[in-house]
């Protein structure tokens, strides 16, 4: 029994020492794996905690599974849109359960700075590109199926198309009748320029993706 006890103590000491060393090394590598912190980022992290964001969302995959993971949200949404959203989510996304959150201007900007900082954390490639989605590495031929994948991943949060999608933005099922392909393409390139004051943020698509999603949206006319 004494030898088992000593073995137990040895296991704790050795594993503890190993964890201690790895902690030291991981901390030392932090500078290469994250970009430098600013006051805005740190204050934004405080805003993140004060508003209990983690009990609906995940970040770096940890948190609650009620709302989207926000690790890469600043890749998908531009900073202006995020800040506007945090000030009054219900305006940009009618009916969202987040509508009670109303940050003041400074907190909203800091939270945007925090999430923008988070997107550049070196996460060893997480989350991976969806192998069956738009970034699957297959040639984007501008086909309808690529367009559907983009729609499902980017547009369907707010828009309906052919009975599938959200209600925050207009139903796009008949958009091909109402708008020309050229109009759609220039709108998707920069919504604010075509329709100043629109609640829609820049979707951040490249021209091939814009072509594909335009083909898909006009396929039902």
């Amino acid at each position: 029994m004494t030898s088992l006890r000593n073995l137990l103590i040895a296991v704790v000491l050795i594993s503890g020492a190993a964890l201690g060393y790895l902690t030291y090394d991981s901390t030392a590598q932090l500078e290469q794996r994250t970009i430098p912190l600013t006051d805005e980022v740190v204050n934004g992290k405080q805003v993140w905690q004060d508003n209990n964001c983690i009990n609906c969302h995940t970040i770096l995959g940890n948190g609650a599974y009620f709302a989207p993971d926000l690790t890469k949200i600043a890749v998908k949404r531009d900073p202006e849109w995020l800040t506007r959203f945090f000030k009054s989510p219900g305006d940009l996304w009618p009916g969202t359960v987040m509508s009670k959150i109303r940050l003041n201007g400074e907190d909203a900007e800091n939270l945007t700075a925090f999430l923008t900082w988070v997107k550049d954390i070196d996460t060893n490639g997480w989350p991976p590109d969806p192998p069956g989605g738009q970034d699957s590495g297959q040639p984007q031929d501008g086909s309808e199926s690529t367009g559907k994948a983009i729609f499902d991943s980017e547009c369907s949060v707010c828009h309906q198309f052919d009975g599938s999608g959200g209600n925050a933005g207009p139903d796009l099922t008949n958009i091909g009748r109402d708008r020309s392909k050229e109009w759609l393409k220039s709108f998707l390139r920069d919504p604010q320029e075509v329709k100043p004051g629109t609640v829609m943020g820049n979707p951040g698509l490249d021209s091939e993706e814009i072509n594909a999603v335009t083909e898909y949206l006009t396929s039902l006319k």
Binding site: L8, S15, T34, D122, T123
Partner: peptide, 21 residues
């Protein structure tokens, strides 16, 4: 002994994607 020998460094399964090496 086995819980601690596997569990202490088993913490590594939480350090895959959070910005650690």
């Amino acid at each position: 002994i086995l819980v601690l020998a596997t569990g202490i460094l088993g913490i590594g399964h939480h350090y895959y994607w959070i910005g650690t090496p």
